[in-house]
Every structure is written in C-alpha cells, then in structure tokens.
Nucleic acid binder design. Structure first.
Lengths: 117, 117
DNA sequence: AGGTATACTCACTTTAGGGTGAGTTATTGT
DNA sequence: ACAATAACTCACCCTAAAGTGAGTATACCT
C-alpha cells in the first residue's frame, strides 16, 4: 500500500488539473488507435513516405497505414506534402509542432512503462 | 507546415527514445479504456468508495465501474483495502505511487489537449 | 417480513475498431 | 505489351470492447 492521501487534506492532490474534463477522453481516444503513435514517431524520425513506413512496420497493412496517416493529418499531427501529383504519386509526411509536443508526452509514457512494467 | 527535419540531420530527433518499443503499445492499450483515467483521477482526489465514484460519474454503469476498478487494481495503479468483509461490504480505494506518476503524465496530456484542441 | 444498502459478478446484446481482398491511376522499365 | 510502382480507397468480415439486465450476500432499519 502506498501514498494514501492524509485524511483532512481537503481532497486536494498534487495533480495540476482539478478536474479531468472531457479533453482527456478525447485525447486518449485520438492517440490510442493501434500503430498510430508508432507511425507518428517514425515520421518524426525522418521516414517520410508511405512505402518506407510500410517497410518499417511489416505487420501493418497498407489499409491501416493509410487510415492512420489520414487520421494523423486530420488531427494536424503531421503535414502531407504532395511532391508529385501524377502516378506514381509521391507524397512526403512531416511532423507538426503539435505532433512534436505530443510525442514528448508519449515518450514520458514510454519511460513510465519502462520503469513500472 | 511546421518543423520539418533538416535533410542530412541523420534521422535523429529530439525525442529521447530512439525507437518506440512495444511498451508504448502496452501502456496505451492499458490507459485508453473509457472512464479508466477519470476514475483513477477521482480516486487520487480522495473519492474512495464504489458508491461515491458511481455518484461522480452518473453516466457510468455499475458494471463498467467494477470492471475499471478491477483493471486498475490489476495494473497496480490503485490499492483495494477491505474495511468490512461482511455485507454490506465496505471497501476503500487508494492511488499507488505508480498511479500517481502516471496521472502526472495524463495531466500533461490534458494540458496538451487544452492548448491544441 | 420486507425494503435498503454495498460492492460487486455473470450472461447477454450491440457497437466500434482492426484487419483483409480487390481495385484505381498514370508513368517508367523490360 | 506487360509488369511494377506509389499511395491510396471501398466494401466487407470478424473479434474485442462497451454497455445492459438480472442476480448475489448479509446486516441493519422499519
């Protein structure tokens, strides 16, 4: 048993937010889909193309990768830059500032996992 | 378009972990179930009993609350303390150090959400 | 004797998400 | 002429998660 709150401490805790509003729900729902944060991380690490991302995750299908990429674009976590319109299309993905800030927190989560799992 | 990595920067990025291993998958899977982090937060804020938690989340059913609590106990994010064995049972829940460290990161996620959503 | 309270569990249905197969477009290489 | 390539989308299935209804134990209160 660890860190019980002292009785009479008026229910305050050292967590900044006094009430975890729905934003956290939304954030968690948006970051939890399988592969999504790994793909984001890979893009942050410089992997720009669909095909290279495919190679990076052999057990991830084209379809799911496409879905995750469009989600990441919709979330404004990555930017999609069209290099060549005509087939064979060439598109590059880049992480945004918003995505980079999120990744820092995801990395904290990773560190927490390493410590406690 | 924001923060593209400079070409030739050898794919390094300012994220600590060089590769986001499966731990992040596991962590995300464990924290994403609906209500779970909110229940954890409420417990951290001093709400100790099943019935008080029920009142705190009117749209959360007994069954899901029970499931989330047992998950949180299994994850060692909360401790379950039996106050009275015989019916009517009385049980108190307390957050663990592990849970408290996680909540700090969840709060960062919350702040990130407030900033960017 | 019947109702209430606490903290659940079990079985079931419904919904959302993950995953698969096929098809598209236009250009380059053999 | 034919295959390959890049980056997808559409339609479908199937499993896992969410949510719902009912039931349980025991003691106290009226």
């Amino acid at each position: 048993m660890s860190s019980q709150l002292k009785p009479g401490t008026s229910n305050a805790c050292n967590i900044t937010a006094l009430s975890l509003a729905c934003e956290v729900n939304d954030v968690l729902r948006d970051i939890s889909p399988r592969w999504k944060m790994q793909v984001l991380h890979k893009i942050a690490a410089g992997t720009k193309q669909f095909s290279s991302l495919k190679l990076a995750f052999p057990s991830l299908s084209d379809q799911i990768l496409g879905k995750r990429l469009s989600e990441l674009v919709d979330d404004e976590l990555i930017d999609k830059v069209i290099i060549e319109e005509k087939a064979p299309k060439r598109i590059h993905y880049f992480i945004t500032d918003k995505g980079l800030e999120l990744l820092k927190i995801i990395d904290d989560l990773h560190q927490w996992g390493l410590k406690w799992y």
